[in-house]
Design a protein around this nucleic acid. Structure first.
Lengths: 348, 348
DNA sequence: AGTTCTGCTGCAAACGTTTGTAGTCGCATG
DNA sequence: CATGCGACTACAAACGTTTGCAGCAGAACT
């Protein structure tokens, strides 16, 4: 029913190959002929069938984007940035949601494999070996985890966690809890590593709670555990959990930051909306989305590339963190490294 | 490079057509042969090329889902429900975001047209005539707007607005502001119509402010206007705007609900997170996502169908609405119609 | 005048599938 | 022994494109 290239050829009295070239290689066809063809196409409402084109060129001009949870406010800015960046390069982005399930994750990559030119795998919960296997099916760029042998873009969340810990210690906190994230998450491991180290060098004690689902509910659910641990400050895996925790503490009549300080990670839109406003580590999500698209488009088919882009993070001090029980000559109110959202690039 | 059906045929010593049938019509091929074929396919890592299949069957087994703004918390539940529902029917959902821009909206439908079996168009900002034109390119199901001649699923937001107004009037409010939504929105027109009617029948005054972008910022920006209007209650186009407004009022030292009552619409996750918790109209977004998928899959190619599914809404009373200046024997605390998330179906 | 070049267009194969039709085989039936 | 049938499998055309190659005219060289 829809018009094909053959209909256009017939209508304009030329061969199909000429019609094809009129669209995809204008310089190879006489300007006058081309005008004829385009006019005929217009009246027929012809639109090239991308599937057929993909079949022969091997390029679909589509990018897959897989995220753990589209409802997590961390992802939308990344998605939007990737979409508009890709659109500017004549690519379309197909978003899919895995519900934090590694099985669905794998299934989706496989399903997308043949209909996109590459997949952006964000915050994967699979194992590295699984990811490497999948990378044989379709070009992959991993976001929020460095996978040896694959292009990846990560955020320097270790640095962010360190800054957050130093901030808390500087405020006089000596017993701090880490509200851990989900099991498969590289980011979670990084945070834990950096926080542990920072606590040790500062002579503070770190209580690790987790792993937990990275949700608001799970943040709330850990409130009891936090209180039992007897800490004066908490660093959470992400803003969502921090918000959930603050909420549950509030319900119990525990004042933030007067009795307990809470610091989040991600600086989502949420963090400016809570009472008190959330001290958090800002991660450059939009920049990550753009960088991932660039890497995918740039590397094209040579899948075994090893570029790693690392984006800087910064500490954003708001109102959910305050003085701890151990008075100290604290640091100044602001403690932010220069930040332009762009990357240090390295190779491994 | 990736294994094709021909490789599998060669490896298992049968014709390609047999391989094809081994996958898509198992009962037509000898069980033993089939086992051979599947084994060969397995070792070669063969996966059928969906683009090639689509070329001949005309079915891609993909669904496009277009939303105005993926960062608006109204959409993720709808998206997730549509995705998992579709996955259960062996379909994949491709999500795209228009940034509230009608131009991008049209472009995306056209781009998706040839690579999906149909498109779910959520909360369109285009005109009805534009939508009808596009429906000739690809089967369309419209969500949040009834378009004559096209299948659509809408929420009975007029009923929700009426309930909200009655709630406010019952609390003693006589001067109420309506914080309007975006220009192209059918939902916005419905709310306005219903609220106006409800105000008139109750003898209350309604001040309409807008149109506005459906964002938190724009809710905050209207705080001045709300105060100038001298109203004691506000009904907002959505939760996002309600939250933004409450925030801005709070900054000005205006107490909610003591001085001004605020009611939202959508019952997003946000509404339970604000202080005070938001009174709002719950819209069954997940059910809408599922219903839309069903309609698309069911109607298949006969595009000119006229089914309309209407989903009920309910009023959820929380803490952001309180007594107004005019004491009345108010209604009970709860005022909710029976609600099971399912639809009344009708035809027009 | 012959040759080469340039600019354009047509031809036909190819991409990886599906599917209608025809063929083969063994076996039971008449 | 011919016939028919059932179960299976091979053949080949088709889907809507792209693209290397060849062809052809005319212009520009030698």
């Amino acid at each position: 029913m829809p018009a094909t290239i053959r209909d256009v050829a017939k209508a304009s009295g030329v061969h199909v190959s000429t019609v094809s070239r009129a669209f995809s290689a204008p310089q190879l066809v006489n300007a006058e002929t081309r005008a004829h063809v385009l006019a005929a196409a217009e009246v027929l409402g012809y639109r090239p069938n991308r599937a057929a084109r993909a079949l022969i060129t091997g390029r679909t001009h589509n990018i897959g984007l897989i995220v753990a949870d589209i409802a997590n406010p961390f992802f939308p800015p990344l998605i939007k940035a990737a979409e508009s960046h890709a659109r500017g390069r004549d690519y379309h982005v197909f978003v899919a949601d895995t519900n934090e399930d590694p099985g669905v994750e794998e299934e989706l990559v496989l399903a997308l494999a043949k209909q996109v030119d590459g997949v952006l795998l964000c915050s994967p919960r699979m194992s590295n070996t699984q990811i490497e296997q999948l990378s044989r099916e379709v070009p992959l760029v991993v976001v929020n985890r460095p996978v040896p042998g694959l292009p990846a873009v990560v955020m320097d969340v270790a640095q962010g966690a360190r800054l957050a810990m130093e901030h808390l210690v500087g405020l006089g906190h000596r017993e701090i809890a880490l509200l851990g994230g989900p099991r498969g998450s590289w980011t979670n491991r990084e945070i834990r590593r950096a926080a542990t180290l920072a606590a040790r060098t500062a002579g503070a004690e770190l209580v690790v709670l987790g792993p937990n689902a990275p949700t608001e509910e799970s943040g709330s659910a850990q409130a009891e555990a936090v209180l039992r641990a007897g800490v004066s400050a908490v660093l959470a895996y992400n803003d969502l959990m921090a918000v959930g925790l603050i909420d549950a503490l509030d319900h119990r009549g525990v004042k933030v930051p007067d009795q307990i300080s809470v610091v989040g990670i991600d600086d989502t839109a949420l963090s400016r909306r809570t009472r008190p406003m959330l001290t958090t580590v800002a991660t450059p999500t939009a920049a990550a989305g753009r960088a991932a698209v660039d890497m995918l488009l740039q590397h094209g088919d040579d899948r075994r590339t090893t570029a790693l882009v690392t984006l800087q993070t910064e500490l954003v001090i708001r109102d959910s963190s305050g003085p701890g029980p151990h008075r100290t000559a604290g640091p100044g109110r602001r403690q932010q490294p220069p930040f332009d959202g762009v990357a240090s690039e390295s190779r491994e």
